[in-house]
Design a binder for these strands. Structure first.
Lengths: 197, 197, 197, 197
DNA sequence: AATGAATGAGTGTTCATTCAT
DNA sequence: AATGAATGAACACTCATTCAT
């Protein structure tokens, strides 16, 4: 099959340094925290001098915001894909939970920033980060609305219970233990027992 | 006991500045985060110069550890008292959850450090902080062990679900909404529905 | 080789600020001592802010080591040149002594640090400074080994006597008195003559 | 001879804490240098708080001066005693040299400060320290004047040679090697013998 | 697109010193 | 004679940022 057109031909490395920088920033923010990471650290990680970062980003805060956004994008993408593969409401919720957890945990430098970074740390970008969080959360709100539940169940608290527990997971999660999929299933099992009509 | 001279009674002032400093540190650590709070900030909050803090604490990290310990002490105290007032296992767990949440929100300066501060930020005190966390968690482990549950329920995941959700609550909790007691009841209701044998 | 464009020839300006900083540090270390000299002092001396020094040097200790090395380099260079100009062993020793003394006094900023600074003050660089001292001393060891001396003379003590006296000289030396060459000759004369009547 | 008045009856431990403090200061100044030793270090060494030192001394500089004076007193005492035991000029000089060296080396916290501390470090006390040094040096000047020497020998340079070498000795001296007495004899032997073949 | 050099404000911490008790 | 608490200035060093080249 000669001459097959170059597949996708993804945009010819347009500003690939920016992506590199963002990767480094994401990793370092997760490993050391936002404040403990210096622009020099990030620059060194990609073989640059710290001043050069400013050609690509206006400020450190902007980097945080960019990491945050990219993290949200990736988690949302993973969750959306997982949900689309299922039709039954409880299975959709379980798939979403598993994808969320997997993204949070499996070396996802980006997505952990989403959880770990208090919007307060972002300084001026605080508002935009809060918005991003809310947008993402919306997905779980909808998945839970779609469940068939006994009328006395408060769907808001069901969501807070599940979503809170998921977000807290990176605190206790250890690689080598149960996979994100198993954790999600256990959580849902615990909630679903007899909750279904 | 005539005429015995009043036993000095000299101002008890047993290092009350240390307590003041700790209060200020707790509040600022919560409001701005550990890294974003400077020793000068803390000193100014109690009308001192930054160097003077070092008479009372050896380092900033030691302050964090002290706040952490005090936070753990307060939450543990509240939870222990609440649990002692009940006998039925589910009510004991609910009382503990409510007290935990209330402490997290009421003494928020101290106890939120417990939740918000990654042990990693504590530098040398990392190990001791991890120990404190584990000790505290032990309480919930026991309360859940005491529940009568259908055999297929995994008590570990029940604990992780509840405890995670509780710890995540300060993120969304707004004063003026449901009280900590209501939140705790809703969480437990959601879990208990039909979970009981 | 037609038309080859002049090879850029861009300003060689090879970090001349580093040299300036080192000069200032050397002078201040000599005048006030290492501990009594602050980075601010050094920075001010070259019209910089103290933080800017760290672009050129990693730490204050590294500056001390650099001054030390440069001092050793200059003295060694002077001594080697002086020695090379003579052939007769006693004259070689005298030339070395004069050059050593002259360097100690002429380049005093640099070379006195060599004499005045206790390796202990250098912290981490202690070992390297001890090595530099030993290397330099080696020169005098050899020059004395080359002397023809009565067998009962202990060459080690001859060296310690001469080298110690030379190094101690900056303590009492005043410009305007005898030149380094005269001092060296007098020392050697004193050693070389039969002193007892 | 009954009733002979108590001999001297040296003031009954008047201010023995001052002496303790001075001992600690002397030791620490020698071990770590003047600048690197803090008032807290000295206070802790005698089980005091740093503020309490100021009851005994006006300032850190005053402590340095006191240590210096006491050092000079002790070395001078040792040298005077040694010299008094001899009559022959060369032996007197040798005895003085040995006593000087022994005082400098044999754990004499006080006397090393005399050599190691640049008068410059003493701040305001600089002048008094220079005077003390000169007074002490006077002893060697006289001992050398008493020597019978060939007329062409410059006594000043003989003194500078010997005294410089002695003062430089602590730099290379290692306990376990030759005793101070041996070192002094070797130095004098070297000077006294006809060196040329 | 990146560098080299610097800025200026800030960091945690140390220190000699003071002083009421 | 000494303490407990604080001061205020200084210290070495770091950092996000700037900007001419």
């Amino acid at each position: 099959m000669p001459n097959s057109p170059a597949p996708a031909l993804r945009a010819p490395r347009q500003d690939n340094r920016r992506a590199q920088l963002l990767d480094a920033a994401a990793r370092l923010f997760r490993e050391q925290g936002f404040h403990a990471t210096s622009m020099r650290d990030i620059a060194k990680a990609v073989g640059m001098l710290s001043g050069s970062i400013y050609y690509h980003f206006d400020s450190k805060e902007e980097m945080l915001l960019a990491v945050y956004q990219e993290g949200e994008r990736r988690v949302a993408e993973a969750v959306d894909a997982a949900v689309a593969a299922e039709t039954e409401p409880w299975r959709r919720l379980e798939a979403a939970s598993a994808a969320h957890l997997r993204a949070l945990i499996a070396h996802r430098d980006y997505s952990q920033v989403m959880i770990q970074t208090s919007p307060r740390e972002a300084g001026g970008a605080e508002g935009r980060i809060r918005d991003l969080r809310r947008d993402y959360e919306q997905r779980f709100r909808r998945l839970i609305d779609d469940l068939k539940l006994p009328p006395e169940i408060d769907r808001r608290y069901l969501r807070l219970l599940l979503f809170g527990a998921l977000n807290w997971s990176p605190i206790w999660y250890r690689t080598g233990g149960d996979s994100p999929e198993i954790v999600a299933r256990r959580f849902l099992d615990t909630l679903r027992k007899q909750l279904e009509v």
